[in-house]
């Protein structure tokens, strides 16, 4: 029988110990065979380090192509990647609602372990709290991570002419979540793109020198991420509609629901700003990396200094792409 999480699993007593032993040690013991300490001790060593944290409250907890656990690990790893860092150590904090299924907890922990194995990152410390029924929605997860920044990566300002690459099809995570959230009775092969993007730091080698900036287009999608970059840099961005990779299923679902894929989240894609003239060369190397075969140069920085994003459309027109306002909901009109 599927045991349910009780408040006593969070009170620090024997139930807590059992939960940690049976679930978390089972999956997270690669680095620390016997116990997960309250504090993990390590030497900082040479070089620059990146440190980040993120909390995950996704609904539904299980979606096509992943679950909240996979997302929590990928999200933090990808945040480290944006700094040009290889992930080393992660912490994980669970807030679990009373009555949550232990079986589900196993699935979540296992997929966190799988991503770690794949990337070499290690979960080295953690915490579990259980809250009364109704105080949380199933499970919330916080992760933080420390990574070692590649010496080849040197983040710097964008100038007109710099090129922008996206590493794959957009909106696949956001679209998957929408289908499951609204129980739309839609059948499709489409899955969330939820993936760790470490390959960009590991795999680009010397080409990382040409990269000026990286950003993962999560909440608010490509449009919002581009707007953030343009604003931050104070340089206009021109997006080329025709070259933005969008899977036909994503097109289909966003047409059906009346939602713009430019605003739907990616969880395994990276926006990469490459210095002028190096776009094609870097793109060639990116395409050879895992999960990046659909990569495209989608735009460039232009001479405008308003920090706005506009799109050259299929038909040859021009339209401004603002940030996301409000929630995306299925519409009829």
């Amino acid at each position: 029988m599927d045991e349910k999480i009780k408040l006593s699993h969070g009170d620090g007593g024997s139930d807590t110990q059992r939960l940690i032993k049976n679930v978390f040690y089972k999956y997270f013991n690669d680095s620390i065979p016997n116990a997960m300490p309250d504090s993990f001790v390590f030497e900082v060593g040479q070089g620059k380090h990146a440190y980040t944290t993120d909390s995950f409250v996704v609904k539904p907890l299980f979606f096509r192509g992943g679950n909240i656990g996979k997302l929590a690990v990928c999200g933090t790893i990808n945040d480290l990647v944006t700094a040009g860092a290889i992930p080393l150590f992660l912490s994980v904090g669970f807030v679990i609602e009373e009555g949550f299924s232990t079986e589900k907890l196993h699935i979540i922990a296992k997929s966190m372990r799988d991503v770690c194995k794949q990337t070499g990152a290690k979960i080295v410390t953690g915490d579990t709290k259980v809250v009364e029924r109704g105080s949380a929605d199933g499970i919330f997860i916080n992760t933080s991570g420390i990574g070692l920044v590649s010496e080849l990566y040197n983040s710097r300002r964008a100038v007109p002419g710099d090129e922008i690459i996206i590493t794959g099809g957009i909106a696949e995570h956001g679209t998957s979540i929408l289908i499951d959230r609204y129980e739309l009775g839609i059948k499709t092969e489409l899955e969330s793109d939820c993936t760790p993007m470490c390959c960009l730091v590991n795999g680009l080698g010397e080409n990382l020198k040409h990269v000026k900036q990286m950003k993962d287009p999560t909440r608010g999608g490509l449009a919002t991420a581009l707007n953030e970059i343009a604003l931050e840099q104070g340089v206009d961005v021109e997006l080329n509609e025709q070259s933005v990779p969008v899977k036909s299923e994503v097109h289909g679902i966003s047409d059906i629901l009346g939602i713009d894929p430019l605003y739907l989240a990616c969880e395994g894609r990276m926006l990469i700003v490459v210095e002028k003239g190096c776009g094609e060369k870097v793109l060639h190397h990116i395409k050879a990396l895992d999960y990046c075969d659909e990569a495209q140069i989608i735009g460039r920085f232009t001479s405008g200094h308003l920090g706005i994003v506009y799109m050259k459309t299929f038909i040859g027109g021009k339209s401004i792409i603002p940030m996301l306002e409000g929630q995306m909901l299925p519409r009829i009109c």
């Binding site: 739309l184 009775g185 839609i186 059948k187 499709t188 092969e189 489409l190 899977k247 036909s248 299923e249 097109h251 289909g252 679902i253 047409d255 059906i256």
Partner: peptide, 11 residues
């Protein structure tokens, strides 16, 4: 009916 649009089926 189950119908298909761009690789997506809906009822």
């Amino acid at each position: 009916a189950w119908v298909e649009t761009m690789g997506v089926r809906q009822r």
